[in-house]
Simulated assay, not measured.
Amino acid sequence: MAVFVALGAFLMTLVGGWTAQRVTDRRHLVLGLAGGLMLGVVGLDLLPEALEAAGDEVFGVPAALLLFVGGFLLGHLVERLLAVRRAAHGADERAPQVGLTAAAAMVGHSLMDGIAIGAAFQVGGGMGAAVAVAVITHDFADGFNTYTITSLYGNEKRKAVAMLVADALAPMVGAASTLLFTLPAELLGSYLGFFGGVLLYLAAAEILPEAHHDHPARSTLLCTVAGVAFIWLVVGIAG
């Protein structure tokens, strides 16, 4: 049942990527929306789930928040290292490796989405259905962001499509893997916190500044707000 439900996530991810491809003439709006979707996913979905699942504290701070900060710092460190590497070679353009690395992180997140679906169905049908609704709905944002991030850093279209397909397949692989093991809730919560930090860095330091660089328009800001509002609606319906 979990694998069948993950097929919906596969299709929704492809729809999100297709949407990102079709609006290349409104790139600033795409990036503004992508930034809002990412901010909404982190603040309204990933971080609350992480705090609930990974409830242990480390020196007075919830473990999920420590990993969240660690993920943000790792994203910053990787981007800075690549920037230094580009400067050493006299290159001003964005490194395609950054986009591929970010997209690979999205694929890893989608894999965990599939594992979450399978683990929820291990608990019960009602829990599995609730998690599946949340995952399938926000996988539109995952597909949208995976294609956008890969393309943003100068990668060829075929690479962006390849990462999109990998991101679409990941939930099915993750759901199928839960037939072989049971995932501890603490581990899932820790991962969500860490990934949330990486995603927030990409949204705040890369995607949104790029969206407003050439087109500091009100419409771009409205797209960002709309992205956050959409995720809020999804979380509210799924909850």
Rank of each mutant, 00 (worst) to 15 (best):
M172T: 10
A170H: 00
V133I: 13
L77M: 12
G108P: 02
G114N: 00
L31C: 05
F140L: 15
H215Y: 12
F230C: 12
T150V: 12
Y147N: 03
A205R: 12
I117A: 09
C223H: 09
L66G: 13
A91Q: 14
L33A: 10
A20Q: 12
S110P: 02
G40L: 07
G40W: 12
E206M: 03
H28M: 08
F10K: 01
L29N: 09
A176C: 08
T19K: 02
A87V: 09
H138W: 10
V173N: 03
T182A: 09
L188I: 04
L152P: 04
T224N: 12
T146M: 07
S219G: 03
R86Y: 08
E186F: 10
G108S: 04
L199M: 15
A54I: 04
L200V: 08
Y191A: 02
R158E: 11
G189V: 05
E52L: 08
F68P: 05
G125H: 11
N155R: 09
L180Y: 13
P96Y: 11
I117R: 14
F195H: 09
L164A: 05
L164D: 06
L164Y: 02
E156D: 14
H213P: 01
F72Y: 15
V165Q: 03
A104K: 07
D92A: 12
F72R: 04
L233F: 11
Y147D: 04
G55C: 02
Y191G: 00
A116I: 07
G118W: 11
D92Q: 14
D142C: 02
V61Y: 08
T182D: 02
A2P: 07
S219N: 07
L47W: 06
L152F: 08
A87Q: 13
V107L: 09
K157P: 01
F10W: 14
E186L: 08
L188P: 05
I207L: 15
V133Y: 10
D45E: 11
G143R: 00
E156P: 15
A105M: 10
V234L: 13
L199T: 10
G32R: 07
G17Y: 00
N155K: 03
G114R: 00
L187H: 12
F59V: 09
A116Y: 05
Q97E: 11
Y201C: 08
L46E: 06
A54D: 11
L200C: 04
A160H: 06
A141T: 14
P209Q: 07
V3Q: 02
A205P: 03
G70Q: 07
F181E: 00
L200G: 02
L74T: 06
V235G: 01
D142P: 01
A160L: 05
Y201L: 07
G174K: 00
A105N: 05
G118V: 09
D113F: 00
L169H: 07
P216T: 04
L7N: 08
A116Q: 06
H89A: 10
D113I: 02
A102N: 13
P48I: 01
G125S: 10
L44G: 03
L81K: 13
S190Q: 10
L51V: 09
F230I: 13
L82M: 13
A88G: 08
D92I: 05
G236N: 14
I231L: 14
V133L: 14
T24G: 05
V235M: 12
A205T: 05
